[in-house]
Amino acid sequence: MTQALSSLPVTDPQDRHVDWAARLRRKPRPVETVVQGLLFLCGAISILTTLGILLVLGNESLAFFTDPEVNVFEFFTGTHWQPQTGDFGVWPLVNATLMTSAIAMVVAMPLGIFAAIYLSEYAAPRAKAILKPTLEILAGIPTVVFGFFALTFITPLLRSIFGEDTVQIYNNASAGLVMGLMIVPLIASMSEDALSAVPRTLREGAYGLGATKLETTVQVVLPAALSGLVAAFIIGVSRAVGETMIVAIAAGATSQLTFNPFEAAETITGHIARISGGDLSYGSLDYTSLFALALTLFVITLGLNLVSRWLVNRFREQYD
């Protein structure tokens, strides 16, 4: 043992020839520096992109709002969006966006949370092994496919149920319902994460008091996971508000302020997609109005994100 140790190379503390100052001096480590720089760059790109988008949105929106033909007050209060006649009231578009999103969330929230409860609390490993990949496949379907599903399956279904006179070919209900189905996997997976994060000891505490499985799930696990469920809801709404393809295909291309989900009404995203698809002359009012709409959308999602942060912090349960 001593022999093995004594054969190890060591610096003799008595050795006068060792230049300690040089030995302890900081050495250049180029690889460290380069990698660190690259990593920083990757982080910076997302920030720069956001800033760039904001800059363009702000710039073009400014051009729109300062145009003599546009009245800012009318933009935020007007109930007609008819660029041809110079009507730039944003409410019909906002209303359709909110209506489709609300319908979507009414579908997605219960389905998503129930699926999550089943997955996290009830499903046997085998059922889980089938259900989870299925949900992931559902999440991977392109939205254009969902759009056609709405138009060619859900719309005819709604029309056969409620009558062809009631339900228009293009309508918010069909688009909203399908958008809800599209969002289910997102809600389910986020909610499942939230439920699984509830410590096992909390469940045991409930069972140890004679709680049934349902009582434990509904009265202990769900409230404990509330912040995560709220986050799932908000992300879901953001997704619905920003969703474009389904509403562009199935919700209709007429901007009108209606509260009847069976009527056609164009959403913000649907409108942007349609107009920017046509030939649009750079700098025209049609052109800049799209940026004002995009900015409106941005503000809505930003607002939702802020609200969600606030809610999540407010309801956060600390376990330790």
């Binding site: 505490g205 409930a206 140890g208 008091l209």
Partner: peptide, 15 residues
């Protein structure tokens, strides 16, 4: 479990 209650190693009050 209603007749035989349990207290655990780590305190686990409900939130």
């Amino acid at each position: 479990r209603r007749r035989v209650g349990m207290v655990f190693q780590k305190p686990n009050p409900f939130p």
